[in-house]
Design a protein around this nucleic acid. Structure first.
Lengths: 204, 204
DNA sequence: TCAATTGTTGACCCATTGGTCAGTTTTCTA
DNA sequence: TAGAAAACTGACCAATGGGTCAACAATTGA
């Protein structure tokens, strides 16, 4: 809905405004992929979006706000991918798969994207806004997993397994961001399957 | 001559030179803990070590080299902790535990340290030196794990399990660096144990 | 003891960058 | 279609930070 998050004001939200903001958020994330947080300058973001530096600060209070929105935007895409898969899933196990496979879709699980993500994560401890977003992301991940796990495992184990799955996903993303050759999607998915096969009770 | 990069263990090494370098490496890592890579300026590192900016660049070519050494230093500590535990271990299972518990020793597994580590990781894709160090770290981790796993599992599964363990450790560190309250050591260790209990064949 | 080496400092340079602003162009609307 | 509002630009500013350098202090060793 954009409505540029709360910032109160009635905010008419001209079309152009919405479009430019989105362009800039995306440009910011793309620059992040190539340059990391250190090299992600306002000028580069502007250039990347085919605009001038001035306009970036016209739409975003400052650098932090820009990258905060970039993080939201990037997460939204991933989040929607998972939701879409979740909608197709009928059984608990399928819902588990939906969450996992959504997180490893080819268009997301790429070294440069993982790297951008890593850069954002590294800022989390010093940027309360980013921390909040991160919290939300983790909460949703947990919730998605739990809703499936409670039907597959004794209640007492669900929490731990949900955390393990999240941890594995994070760890694999980290690895993919670290190794330039990247960790292949197949290996990542195989890892996740291996975990589920051994941790979940046998089933048909 | 400084005999840079300690590697060639020749170790003539003026005393003062060796000491200063170590102080600076450590100061660099500490600043990283508090400020992240963005805020880790040469001036701050110098101040933190009770010296002037000039001296930092007297001992290290440039900022990259300084933080490269900081990463080496930090890793060395962790690495030695694992080695020490490994030396005490007799059975393969104990060796596994040594690696895991070494990676979660209380003095290492702290939010600020995990955070510093995260900051370093975020630079890896753009800093070939850091990438090399990271590669070495992963290689040693894998090797340590494999030497234990081959006695506990069919050969074909070892590689995957070693990767899973590494991934879990990385993921838990990441999480600890992200959440300010941090992930408690107990939970982290419980996670690892839970994984091993389900992935390794039953044993006495 | 006296040079030579090493350690150390602080001033200085320069490129970069986040952010401001005054003013110009485009778009919207009455 | 005029004028208000929004979009947009580029120049400018102040601060920061990496890196250089010349000079000074301490240490060493012959």
């Amino acid at each position: 809905m954009v409505r540029q998050h709360g910032r109160a004001t009635g905010m008419k939200l001209t079309k152009i405004s919405a479009i430019r903001r989105k362009e800039l958020r995306q440009a910011a994330f793309q620059v992040l992929q190539q340059e990391g947080m250190a090299g992600a300058t306002l000028e580069k973001v502007a250039t990347h979006a085919g605009a001038s530096k001035g306009i970036v600060l016209h739409y975003f209070r400052n650098k932090q706000e820009l990258f905060e929105h970039a993080m939201r935007e990037a997460n939204l895409a991933l989040s929607e991918a998972v939701s879409a898969r979740l909608r197709q899933a009928t059984t608990p196990y399928e819902r588990l798969e939906a969450v996992i496979e959504g997180n490893f879709e080819a268009r997301f699980f790429q070294p440069s994207i993982c790297h951008a993500w890593l850069s954002l994560c590294a800022e989390v401890p010093r940027e309360p806004q980013l921390a909040r977003i991160q919290t939300v992301i983790h909460a949703r991940m947990r919730s998605n997993l739990m809703s499936a796990l409670v039907h597959l495992l004794p209640r007492a184990e669900c929490e731990a397994v949900a955390l393990s799955i999240t941890t594995l996903i994070d760890g694999l993303w980290l690895r993919a961001g670290l190794q330039s050759e990247g960790l292949s999607r197949d290996i990542a998915l195989a890892q996740m399957r291996d975990y589920l096969d051994h941790r979940l009770p046998r089933r048909g």
